[in-house]
Design a protein around this nucleic acid. Structure first.
Length: 554
RNA sequence: GCGCCCAUGGCUCAGCUGGAUAGAGCGCCAGACUACGAAUCUGGAUGUCGCAAGUUCGAAUCUUGCUGGGCGCACCA
């Protein structure tokens, strides 16, 4: 709908220019918004105000010119008005809103989907935690944000691939193997000292125990370095499997798990660095190799090969991103913890050196989660192994409540996650508010069917019976759903969907309390049944994108 | 010290790439089931959008400075 208005405006301005009523000026992107105040119409545009300065004319005068050049071939506008300093307000005919009901019936689960992505290949990479321990609550937020962004892109016609990058080539993994070895020795009766950089969680002991059960004590006398490598592989595998299980139960599934080790095969990283050096992006100071990231606005140049000859994480990351582009992805979305923000200029520099536009790499920062229980902060310390895992959150509050709660804020703002509130089945928990609206509708429809009132199709109802202001508002709200999706995709901001859902559910609950859907009036009942049915479709579609269930009963 | 992000009612946050009278939820007060599910609804109170300048028809939104908080500044990942 909004797009239609934009097109009409665009046409009107062009026509006015052609007729010489307005000077030749380059057309700005026409902005059409939904005014907060209903007296200002269903849609409002400020083009006249924008054009006032370049056209050197009074904005109200311009608005009048545009207004008189508007043509409305589809006959959707009831009236227009010029208001304030030069706003052009549009009032849409009520019947047009009713048509959206028919549109929803046609589209069903595809209402809100579009082809704006045009099959563009996009990769969304997220979570990407080292397999050195179970996922905790901090990873959970990134997991949901990434998953929902992928869903949004998919529903908008992008060809999306979800990837988990396994950082399994660095020191951290070695420390993991070492930790297992230490616990192994301890369980075998040796006294050990546990260093700072090792992992203390109980899961390490479990893994060590399993090794003892399987292989006995034969590693006590083996070569340490070899054993650590072996234990690293075992532990990494076990932990990654657990991570996959946790994610699956959280509703997050990946298309691909990419191991950092892959990058080093066939001297991949070294060859890439070599070619970048030949192109002049990398220079040597005699001992180390430096990437000239300052050429692209970074604070300082960055090391890619250390004094000891080992490539840095950054070096591997350039290779990794080259691999992404080489795989045919035209747009790449990386989802990071916000504490990595300082790393952005570096990676953008790398991407540009590879010959890609900076804008093709979107980086979404996800802020920390403050975990609370009944308003009291829950102490978390990774070093000591005391943290609340994703698994524990899932067991305690459930998938739907957890996911929904993580999506209620912009991802770059801090989030308070209160376990007590999230598991409460009360009005403090917005996920139930929305799900309840859906369950209520299902219940109404079921009851109607029990009374032999079948769910009608649009062709069989008299939609003009839906004339209560609340009914028109519900239709307007539903007509906004595709626009909401569009906005969420454009900005990669999933939280817009939860805000939309809350508003739609609120309108419905309010409507429900004031008006009876099922009554003695057969025709009115049919029309209203159809209306609430379309609401349930929109609720389902939006919840599906969030990966949250739309239950028929609660 | 340098850089990035944030600052909106008592609390937690929206505010759609500059718009008209700044919005929700929670909490507080007062009400609504002999009607489709009260996990719901109706009404009420609450604001110098951190402070100060600037840009313009118009600023919570953009610029600069300041205050206060978070994070980052590795040859770690």
């Amino acid at each position: 709908m909004r797009n239609k208005i934009i097109a009409l405006m665009d046409n009107a301005v062009r026509t006015a220019i052609q007729r010489g009523l307005l000077p030749e000026i380059s057309l700005p992107y026409i902005e059409v918004e939904i005014p907060g105040n209903p007296e200002h119409g269903d849609y409002a545009s400020n083009v006249a105000l924008i054009l006032a300065s370049p056209a050197k004319q009074n904005p109200r005068k311009i608005a009048e010119i545009i207004q008189s050049n508007l043509s409305d071939p589809e006959n959707i506008i009831a009236r227009t008005q010029i208001a304030g300093p030069g706003f052009l307000n549009f009032f849409i005919k009520e019947n047009i809103w009713r048509q959206t009901l028919q549109f929803i019936e046609e589209k069903k689960e595809n209402f809100g989907s579009s082809s704006m992505g045009n099959g563009k290949k996009v990769q969304v990479e997220f979570v990407s935690a080292n397999p050195t321990g179970p996922l905790h609550i901090g990873h959970a937020r990134g997991a949901v944000v990434g998953d929902v962004i992928a869903n949004l892109l998919k529903t908008s016609g992008y060809d999306v691939s979800k990837e988990y990058y396994i950082n399994d080539a660095g020191n951290q993994m070695n420390n993991l193997g070492k930790s297992v070895l230490l616990r192994y020795r301890e369980l075998s009766g040796e006294k050990i000292e546990f260093p700072e950089n090792c992992y203390r969680g109980d899961y390490i002991k479990d893994i060590a125990n399993d090794v003892i059960k399987k292989d006995g004590k034969k590693y006590l006398t083996a070569d340490d370095e070899q054993t650590i490598r072996h234990f690293t592989t075992i532990a990494g595998g076990v932990i990654l499997d657990e991570i996959k299980d946790d994610l699956r139960d959280f509703g997050v599934n990946f298309d691909n798990y990419f191991s950092e080790k892959e990058l080093y095969k066939n001297e991949g990283v070294a060859r890439l660095l070599d070619s970048l050096q030949k192109k002049g992006f990398i220079y040597s100071d005699g001992e180390t190799l430096w990437f000239k990231t300052t050429d692209y606005g970074d604070e300082k140049d960055r090391v890619v090969v250390r004094k000891n000859g080992e490539p840095t994480y950054f070096a591997a990351d350039i290779a990794y991103h080259k691999n992404k582009y080489d795989s045919g992805f035209e747009m790449i979305v990386d989802i990071w913890g916000a504490d990595h923000h300082g790393y952005m200029p570096r990676l953008w520099a790398g991407v540009q050196a590879l010959g890609h536009d900076k804008d093709t790499l979107k980086i979404i920062l996800v802020q920390l989660v403050n975990l609370l229980r009944g308003g009291v902060p829950v102490a978390m310390s990774t070093r000591s192994g005391e943290f609340v895992t994703l698994r524990e959150v899932l067991d305690e509050v459930g998938k739907d409540a957890a996911r929904y709660n993580f999506l209620m804020r912009r991802s770059d703002s801090h989030l308070d996650f209160d376990l007590e509130v999230a598991k409460q089945q009360s009005n403090e928990n917005p996920v139930y508010y929305v799900q309840y609206a859906h369950a209520r509708i299902c219940s109404i429809i079921k009851m109607a069917q029990e009374k032999d009132m079948a769910l009608p199709v649009y062709a069989d109802i008299n939609a003009s019976l839906l004339c209560e202001p609340e009914e028109i508002n519900l239709m307007k709200m539903m007509a906004r759903y595709p626009e909401t999706i569009y906005g969420a995709v454009r900005t990669l901001e999933p939280h817009r969907i939860t805000f939309y859902l809350n508003e739609l559910a609120s309108l419905f609950h309010s409507y429900y309390n004031r008006n009876k859907v099922v009554s003695d009036d057969v025709k009115l009942t049919a029309a209203r049944l159809f209306l609430v049915k379309t609401i349930s479709i929109v609720l389902q579609n939006a919840l599906k994108i969030l990966g949250v269930n739309a239950p028929e009963k609660m």
